[in-house]
Amino acid sequence: MRALRELPEYEPPDGLWDELGQRLARERAEAPLRRAIRELPDHYPPAALWENLHVQLDRDQSERTLRQAIAELPSHHPPAELWEDIAAGLPPAEDTSSPRPRVIALWQRPALAAGITALLCALAWWTFTPGLGKRASISYSTIEVVPLGTDQDDQEMRRDEEAFELVLGELAVHPLLGEDPEIQMLKEELVELDAAREQLQTAISHYGRDAEMEQRMTRIEHERGAVLLAMIAKI
């Protein structure tokens, strides 16, 4: 108890109570405003708004692309003879005195420029945008490939075909195998494979020769080879 009595006494600064009073008065005055803000209803944007914003952004992007394309449009000048031809085709002027240069009023120039720009924009938009939701572009790149096919391959193929002709010729004159049902079936199979081979060759002539086409041709050749071996086995 003695220790407590001996503790020093402190008084708050003189202006503190006044300051506290002022702050409380200010908060009392602001309370209705804060309550009103809290009670304000929530509003959310309609879902379509985001979609519209997205479309608007896309349009801005398209316009930028369009402006860039217009800036890169080449300028073309007609050949000098064209003006002479046009002049020759015109009826002779009644007034032989020197023509008065046409004067475009100063106020007309911005309007004229705006009109031309609008026309160019419309033309470019029509040219570069074939339809809503459509885009077209061109790109360039390189690939590394292993060259396919040589003259030697073609020579080997010719030799293979001679073997087929030889076997088929042999079967045609064979006294027993001419009507053999299995030989008939093998011949039909060969006709089917030959047709597929021709179809593939036509496609190669239209679309070029690539690894995929070569693989397919190789598979057909293997199957033709198997048919040939089966025929030889019968002989």
Binding site: R135, A136, S137, I138, S139, Y140, S141, T142, I143, E144, V145, V146, P147
Partner: peptide, 10 residues
Amino acid sequence: QETLQVVTQN
């Protein structure tokens, strides 16, 4: 190996 130029229309 050989290099081919590829043109692509998209």
